[in-house]
Write a protein that binds this DNA or RNA. Structure first.
Lengths: 153, 153
DNA sequence: GTTGATGCAAAGCATTTGCAATATC
DNA sequence: GATATTGCAAATGCTTTGCATCAAC
C-alpha cells in the first residue's frame, strides 16, 4: 500500500508542470489525481473512471484520459500495454526502474528488478550499435496462487 | 533474405493444420501466405493488404486479418506490438527464439538472442513463484545508421 | 475578460463480425 | 450438396477530438 504522505513530490512536480505549461489547476484534475494515487499500482482509464464516478463525481471519461495523458507528459506516470488493448498507467518514481511479470490467469502484475538483466541489455544494444533509450521486459506465466488452485483440482 | 525453398515446412504445417481443423484451402489463403512469406520479416496487415492488392488480387482486408489469425492459431506466426497500435506479424520457426531491438527514428527492427538474459528471466520467475510461459523483451533506441546521420548535422 | 478545461457526442483507428453470396470439399 | 470462406459494410473497443459551455487565472 502507498502512504500518501510520500507523494508530495508527485503533487509538487505536477504543480510545476502545470505552471510551466500555463495549464490550469481544476477540481477535476485534483479529484482524478487523488483517486489515481489511492488506487492500485496498475490502473486503466476505466478503473479510474468507475472509481471516481462511484464516489459521486460527475467527471467524463474523456477528462480521465486527458488527465492521464497530462501526467504522462509530465513524466509522472508510465504507460504500459500488457495483454489486451488497454493502456495501463503506473506512478513513475524518479530514479526507479522495474519490469513486470503478469499472471495470464488472474491478471495480477508483479514487479521485479534485476540489474544483471539490465547490464546484459546494455551490452546487447552496444554490440548491435544501438544507442539504448528504453526497454520493455514483460514475463508472462502463472502466479503461485493460480498454480496452486490448478493443482488442487 | 529468405530462401523460399526453406519454407516447405511452413506450407506443410499449414496444410496439416487446415485438414486437422477441417478448414479449406482457398485461393485467397494461398495468395496471402505466398506474399507474406516474400515480404519483410516484420509485417502488418495493411502492408500485406497493400502488397496483395498492388499485385492485382481482389482480396479484402478482413480476409488478410482472418488469414493472419489462422497462421497465429496454427503457431506459424508470432504477433507483436511494438511502438504504435498496429499488430506486427513474423514467421515463427520452430525451436528458435529471439528478441527485438527497435529504432525509434527509422523503425527498423533488429533481432537478437541472448541466452544469459533468458536464464536470468527463468530465475527471476522462479524466485517469484511464477511458472513462466512466455516473455517479451524489446529494446528501444537509435540504430547506428540513424545515429550517424544525426551526428553529421 | 482571456485562455484553458470540461462534457458530451462524434470521429478515429485497428481489428472483428454478421450476413448473403460463393467456393471448396 | 453440405459447410467453410469471402467481401463488404457495420460493429467493436479503446482512445482522441470538435465544439459550445464553463471555470481558472
Amino acid at each position: 500500500m502507498e502512504d500518501n504522505s510520500d507523494l508530495q513530490w508527485f503533487w509538487d512536480t505536477l504543480d510545476a508542470h502545470l505552471s510551466r505549461q500555463q495549464l490550469k489547476q481544476t477540481k477535476q484534475r485534483k479529484v482524478i489525481v487523488e483517486h489515481f494515487l489511492r488506487l492500485a499500482r496498475h490502473v486503466d482509464a476505466e478503473d479510474l473512471y468507475r472509481r471516481v464516478r462511484g464516489k459521486g463525481f460527475k467527471i467524463g471519461l474523456a477528462t480521465i484520459y486527458r488527465t492521464l495523458n497530462l501526467l504522462r507528459d509530465a513524466d509522472l506516470v508510465t504507460q504500459h500495454s500488457f495483454t489486451d488493448g488497454r493502456a495501463i498507467f503506473e506512478i513513475k518514481r524518479p530514479g526507479t526502474h522495474h519490469d513486470h511479470m503478469v499472471c495470464s490467469l488472474c491478471g495480477i502484475i508483479q514487479e521485479f528488478e534485476n540489474d544483471q538483466i539490465e547490464v546484459l541489455q546494455s551490452k546487447v544494444a552496444e554490440d548491435h550499435g544501438f544507442t539504448l533509450t528504453s526497454h520493455r521486459l514483460d514475463l508472462f506465466g502463472v502466479c503461485r496462487g493460480c498454480h496452486n488452485e490448478q493443482s488442487q483440482q
